[in-house]
Design a protein around this nucleic acid. Structure first.
Lengths: 153, 153
DNA sequence: CCGTTAGTTCATAATTTACAGAACCAAAAT
DNA sequence: ATTTTGGTTCTGTAAATTATGAACTAACGG
């Protein structure tokens, strides 16, 4: 597989994006590669070669991405190779996960709200405010997705 | 300053949350401490002692948090100490930053869309879809915040 | 002007992470 | 039956990240 300068650059940028969201470098690059490659489906060896990483790095990274539901693979009878591709639904899941992450934080904030001793402090209001917004957002999310689906249709 | 078991536990949990969002351990704990402490405003030394970290760790962490606008401080005349507290607006900023982050990703995806050679592939549709959603979301954000403000009032 | 307070900066030590390379393994091909 | 393919697993290690402690500084206080 031959990658253009632009492709390589985008792989890095996408990689850095995912790194900044907590992903390890190798899996992050694989996400980039599967995104920009001319083919939607790549084999283990194609990934290893394209990114110039070791087989062990590829193995670990791929298994991590499979576990976190970001990629999947198909096989063809009479061909032992697995063909990896991005999971179509992953961007949608990724978005909801981002919001769910906030919701998890709201759970913590609620606990803080219960135990915190700050009589007549404005920070109590701020905290309730923040929790309220996170709740609001969580309830709103399905409607936002629905609105998007309707808009498309 | 004396912290209860529950407070210490919440500091850790909040710390881990912020770490998972890319923050370093020490600043992440400080965020937790300022959240759960009985007083909303803590001095440099109180932070150092409460978290059992060195002065340099405190110094670096505090400056990082100040730079990223997550905390602020007040002073009192005749008192050289700074009193650090969470920035009230920071949760709101934090949220918009999270969305802006997605928008930045959309910029990358647009570049992918331009150069990617995948004739008659369904993944092209998926990509356009994803970009479209991110745009939709970005435009929607101000209205969501507005709706929240109105709901409160 | 000497000591104390409230930090900052620097060198370095301690972890942690992430990867490479080699050994390994099971299924299929020869 | 043994070789090849398509990986996985297991150290070892280089690099990056974080924290420490000591030295430093600037401002104020007596």
């Amino acid at each position: 597989m031959l990658l253009s300068e632009k492709q390589l650059s985008l792989i890095e940028q996408i990689g850095i994006y995912h790194e900044s969201n907590g992903m390890q470098p190798a899996p992050a690059r694989i996400m980039g590669l599967l995104m920009v490659a001319d083919s939607a489906e790549l084999t283990f060896d194609e990934i290893t070669e394209a990114l110039n990483i070791s087989k062990s790095a590829t193995s670990n990274a791929i298994n991590l991405l499979l576990q976190t539901n970001l990629i999947e693979y198909t096989t063809f009878s009479g061909d032992r190779k697995r063909y990896f591709k991005l999971k179509i639904s992953s961007w949608r899941e990724g978005f909801t996960r981002k919001i769910d992450d906030l919701t998890g934080f709201a759970v913590l904030l609620r606990q803080v709200s219960e135990i915190r001793k700050r009589e007549n402090s404005s920070s109590n209001e701020d905290l309730k405010d923040c929790i309220g917004f996170l709740d609001f957002l969580h309830k709103k999310l399905p409607f936002i997705l629905e609105e998007w689906d309707n808009r498309k249709a």
